[in-house]
Each structure stands twice: as C-alpha cells, then as structure tokens.
Amino acid sequence: MSELRDDDAPITTSKRSDKIGDATGNLVEAKGDSLVGRSVTIKRPREELYAYWRDFSRLPSFMDNVERVDVIDDATSHWVVKAPGGKTVEWDAVITEERPNELIAWASKDGADVPNSGRIDFRDAGDRGTVVTATILYDPPAGFIGKIIAKMFQREPAIQARRDLRRFKQLMETGEIATAARTRKQFEEETA
C-alpha cells in the first residue's frame, strides 16, 4: 500500500483530512462550518497587492457583493454585503492576525448576520508575480437551505470568492475590471 505523500495543494483542496483540519486551525478564530478556499496568481509585487487589499474601504471596487466596508479603526471594520432576495447582511470584523505583505486574518464579532472568519495570504510566485489565496470559513444563514438559496442567486461565498479574486487580478494587472457592454445597474435603469 502506498504511503500518503505530503502535498503542496492549498489546504482547502487537499485530499488529506489532517490538512483540512489545519485550514481551520490556521484561522486564529475559526467561525463557521463551510470552508472556501481560492487562489489566483497576479503579475504584481506582493507589497502592492497587500497595500491595496489592506485599505478595506477599497474592497467594494472589486468585490461584487460587498456594498461597503466602513473602517472603524486600524483593526475593526463594518461590512454590508448583498444577500439573496435584495436583502443585505452586516457584521463587524476584527483583524486577528496581520503580517505586513504576507497575510491578513479576521473574524466577525459576535452577533454577525453571517458568522465568518478567514485569511488572505500573499505569497511570492517569482517572475509570475504573487499568489493571493483567500480562505474563508462561514455559517450560511438558514444553514444548508440558505447555502442552496445563496448558490441559486449567485451569492454563495465559494462562487463570489472565485469571481472577486478574478476581478482583483484584472484590476491590479490592467487598472480596470472587464464588464459587459451594459452593466446590471444600467440595464435596471433602462427597464425601470
């Protein structure tokens, strides 16, 4: 029988159950049951990407579901995020660990509409730029049913993380995010 080999796959995609446990253990404060992990390589220096991300008020510029992030102080922010059915969910988040130009970890405060925690890692990729990895642990409202509904409305964090990282890559590499000729907002204004 072959032995398990150590792999370098992202923790959230590893087939080894002990590594999946590491994903939640690596979060300073694990809040949530559903684990999401996504990575993207961006042809920009790690320091530049970290600096942009660390200014949380800029995150709505590429995070489609994030309506706004109000920075309360250096470690605390208030998030307003779109949810299915035209509703929003809100929470306060606190930075639980930070290593400049390497990682930002957070956890929602008690009373969050969607308890969550996670981390964003920035790792050098040599001539290719920087690998940015988002690891998110969350509790969907209404449990499994809420997760299914969120997926139907394209508001599920696994879907959003992939799209948001792709938009972040576009913004950082080209200075803009590619959109359809008419945005959803323009279409709604025209049909109203």
Rank of each mutant, 00 (worst) to 15 (best):
D113I: 11
A161E: 11
D64W: 01
R68W: 01
P60N: 00
Y50D: 13
R166P: 14
D121H: 08
W53H: 14
P157Q: 02
K147G: 11
L59C: 10
H78L: 15
R58A: 15
V81F: 06
I177A: 09
V131S: 13
K151W: 12
V132C: 14
S117E: 11
I136W: 12
E97W: 00
I72G: 11
D113R: 05
H78M: 12
R54M: 08
A181P: 15
S117M: 09
P140T: 00
I145L: 13
I159F: 13
R58G: 13
I159L: 15
T135R: 10
R68I: 13
F122I: 09
Q154Y: 06
M63H: 09
V66C: 09
S77I: 05
R54C: 10
R68S: 13
W79F: 15
P157N: 01
A178G: 06
E98A: 07
D92P: 10
K147E: 04
K109Y: 11
P140R: 00
D92K: 12
N65Q: 06
T96L: 05
T179Y: 00
D124W: 04
N101I: 04
R54V: 05
T96H: 06
G129I: 14
A158H: 07
Y138G: 06
P60C: 02
P60Q: 00
G146H: 03
F62V: 04
I159C: 10
A112W: 07
W53L: 09
K82P: 03
D70F: 00
Y50C: 13
A51T: 14
T183N: 09
L59T: 13
A75K: 11
S117A: 14
G146S: 03
T183G: 11
E47Y: 02
N65G: 10
A142T: 01
Y52A: 14
V89F: 01
W106S: 06
P141G: 02
P100C: 04
A181I: 05
I120F: 07
G175S: 05
V80Y: 00
R155A: 10
Y52E: 15
R46P: 14
I145V: 11
W53S: 10
E67S: 00
D70L: 11
T130C: 12
V81A: 08
I104E: 07
R119V: 08
I149A: 04
Q170A: 05
G175F: 03
S57N: 11
G146I: 07
E47K: 11
L59D: 07
S108G: 08
I145G: 02
P45M: 01
A105N: 10
W106E: 03
N101Q: 09
R58V: 14
D70G: 06
V94H: 00
E156N: 04
A83Q: 05
R99P: 13
V71M: 12
K82A: 08
R119G: 10
L171N: 03
F122E: 12
Q160Y: 06
E98H: 02
E173R: 01
A112K: 12
G111C: 10
R167N: 12
P100D: 04
D73W: 03
T174P: 08
I72W: 01
A112Y: 06
A105G: 12
E173G: 02
T88N: 07
D92R: 09
T130P: 15
L165A: 06
L59R: 13
G111I: 11
K147M: 06
R184D: 09
S61V: 13
S57H: 12
R54Q: 12
R68E: 08
E67R: 00
F144M: 08
Q154L: 14
